[in-house]
Design a protein around this nucleic acid. Structure first.
Length: 633
DNA sequence: CTTTTCACAGTCGCGCGGATGGGA
DNA sequence: TCCCATCCGCGCGACTGTGAAAAG
């Protein structure tokens, strides 16, 4: 079934016809696989499990869940772009619902829904060129594709019932690196990495809410991706679409979200947001972090105009953003030569419920804590962490200073990854104030910019072996908590080792990916003489060194890597010491309690997410392992 | 009673203009 | 003295969540 998309804000644009199909492809060396259709199906609701009946187990017969065991973490294979096959992380449909949820921090090798989403009946996905501000029919996509499904069918990206946090994803069988698209022999498969996944997860575990207003409200967290695997010279349109995630109407009752009738399936309005830089070359998209910070959500059906792209949503409905990458000709017209030139990527943690007013106070608090625009609502900003730990009656949501992975403004210096979540924070990056692509390239910075951001933007990577040896995350406890839905916001993070065992390989694909973490093109490029993926000594000037002993993390295995040959310690880096206090103090002490999830407020359980986010804040490299990504089939 | 709308206060970035300092 | 670059302060607008009022 095709979905006609009309442009309402792009002069001269023409309609687009999408078709979503389930496709079974034969992946060389891995046997046939069934890919998700555009309609999603990735997150299944009850009675929909048949969707994944065709998914293929990993070659070794193991059905891997997103839960990455220690072996996986330690193997380092995930960091081997050349050798990493996602099959090892195959997510089985049967086990996914339990194991997926268990560890949202693991590296999700989400199978891309590449080339299957918008295939038109005539072989073309679009009847004409892609255009901005297209309007999707209700629910985004057709419902007739998946026979035997509910009336909402594939019209919903995820038809999961309440409590099912993650969908199942079929294995792609492809490695992280680009591979030819079967059937074309020429195309490349993209891999998409959700840059700010830890933050999304943090919201997701409380059921993310997004405010919608008549004039439009920005998403927070906003969507931010890194893309690899594109043809360097080919042109692509990159856009986000928001579709209903399930067929339910939701309401917040008794401290939790519960379904309440059927979703309004006839909501009209634009569901697409095309990245302003579209179309552009694959090199452009891969060089930069693709952020959708200016994407606005509205409940005003008539809000769209030529100047502003806003996605029209309906309050109290659950939505799933999806990223589409469509190869186009140089002038922006879609290339119709191959169905495989449309690729769609969905991250379940991006799901949210549209609201006109926040329902869950935990979400409100998370927004306040992490959104720089809400800084004014943080209490005791300056004094929060000046008092001794024992003086505080109630642990702050992120009591450990080292868990403050998300900080606003100039305080982001040690949180390059999350800088992207905060617009207008770095003066030198004016383009960052909007939809932007963050340069990932190295060494193309002005000396001034490099100076100013030396400490703030260093890119660090941990090698797989190092992570295996000393950076294992205590996922077990997290799994339990997460799977049981008891992931409190207010938790203490585990002291983490940080500065050692870091490596930065600017020429590697991972380096490219991670470079986007920090956003802006201002990070200091540091090179070691080591080979790619080899251990790299930690920098002596790393701000970690400036932390108080209390904050210092244990070093339980990286001793060999701690001897540093890094000599650079810029003034800005030094200043981070003081900045740290600000960083840490930004976390709001105020703690609003939601009726539904306050039971584990003081739980000492180490939450993977905290680990992750902290890792992000201090060591983007370590976070690599938690970098959600899809690789298209 | 629930949901939506609106005005509000706070923070921040940007743009502008003036002040300042160095060099020609 | 003039020109240029830099720094600083101010005002404006964008953006946020809050809370009361309005609407359904």
């Amino acid at each position: 079934m095709k979905n006609r998309i009309e442009s309402n804000n792009s002069p001269g644009s023409t309609a687009i016809e999408f078709q979503e199909v389930d496709r079974t492809e034969s992946d060389p060396g891995n046997g046939p696989k069934k890919y998700l259709s555009a309609g999603g199906n990735a997150m299944l609701g009850e009675g929909e499990s048949e969707t994944f009946s065709g998914t293929k187990a990993a070659p070794d017969g193991r059905k891997s869940s997103p839960v990455v065991g220690e072996d996986d973490l330690s193997s380092g294979s995930r960091y081997n772009l050349d050798g990493l096959g996602t099959d090892r992380y195959y997510i089985s449909s049967s086990s996914q619902q339990t194991t997926d949820v268990a560890n949202p921090c693991s590296l999700f090798p989400y199978a891309g829904q590449t080339g299957t989403v918008y295939a038109g009946s005539n072989g073309s996905r679009y009847s004409a060129s892609l255009h901005y501000g297209s309007v999707l029919p209700p629910t985004g996509f057709s419902t007739a594709v998946c026979a035997g499904r509910s009336q909402f069918g594939s019209g919903y990206q995820f038809g999961q019932g309440p409590g099912c946090l993650y969908p199942s994803y079929p294995s792609t069988g492809t490695g992280i690196g680009s591979v030819p698209i079967p059937g074309t022999g020429t195309g490349l498969r993209a891999q998409v990495y959700l840059c700010n996944r830890p933050l999304w997860l943090k919201f997701h575990r409380h059921q993310t809410e997004m405010i919608i207003t008549k004039q439009g409200r920005r998403m927070f967290p906003f969507l931010s991706f890194n893309i690899t695997g594109l043809n360097l010279t080919a042109h692509y349109n990159v856009f986000v679409e928001v579709v209903l995630a399930d067929p339910n109407h939701w309401r917040f009752q008794g401290g939790k979200w519960v379904t309440c009738g059927k979703a309004d399936n006839n909501m009209q309005g634009n569901k697409m947001y095309v990245h302003p830089e579209s179309p552009n070359t694959g090199a452009h998209w891969m060089r930069q972090e693709i952020s959708f910070g200016k994407l606005k959500l509205t409940n005003n059906k008539g809000a769209n105009n030529n100047s502003t792209q806003m996605i029209v949503l309906q309050s109290l409905h659950k939505y799933q953003p999806r990223l589409h990458i469509v190869e186009v000709t140089e002038d922006g017209v879609e290339d119709m030569s191959s169905d495989s030139k449309t690729q769609t990527f969905t991250f379940p943690e991006n799901q949210f419920i549209a609201v006109t007013a926040y329902q869950n106070t935990d979400i409100t608090q998370l927004k306040i804590d992490h959104n720089p625009f809400a800084k004014g609502f943080r209490d005791n900003y300056d004094s929060m962490y000046t008092a001794p730990e024992s003086d505080r009656l109630t642990p702050s949501p992120t009591d450990s200073p080292r868990s403050h992975q998300i900080v606003p403004g100039a305080r982001y210096s040690m949180q390059p990854f999350f800088q992207d979540q905060f617009v207008n924070n770095l003066p030198q990056n004016r383009f960052y104030n909007g939809e932007r692509a963050v340069p990932q390239t190295n060494g193309i910075l002005s000396p001034q910019a490099e100076d100013a951001s030396t400490a703030a933007t260093q890119r660090w990577f941990v090698t797989p072996m190092q992570q295996a040896g000393s950076n294992k995350l205590d996922l077990g406890s997290y799994e339990g908590d997460y799977s049981s839905g008891l992931l409190p916001y207010g938790i203490k993070s585990l002291p983490l080792q940080t500065s050692h065992a870091l490596s930065y390989y600017p020429d590697s694909a991972f380096a490219s990916m991670a470079a986007g973490w920090g956003s802006r093109g201002t990070y200091q490029r540091k090179m070691t003489t080591g080979l790619p993926w080899s251990p790299r000594p930690s920098p002596t000037g790393f701000p970690e060194d400036h932390l108080s002993s209390k904050d210092k993390i244990r070093d339980d295995g990286g001793g060999a890597t701690t001897s540093s040959t890094w000599i650079e310690t810029s003034p800005s880096l030094k200043s981070l010491d003081s900045a740290d206090s600000g960083v840490y103090s930004m976390v709001c002490k105020r703690r609003r309690m939601s009726p539904g999830n306050s039971s584990t407020e003081n739980s000492p359980t180490i939450k993977c997410e905290d680990l992750t986010t902290e890792e992000y804040s201090k060591e983007p490299s370590k976070s690599m392992g938690y970098y959600a990504f899809y690789t298209s089939p």
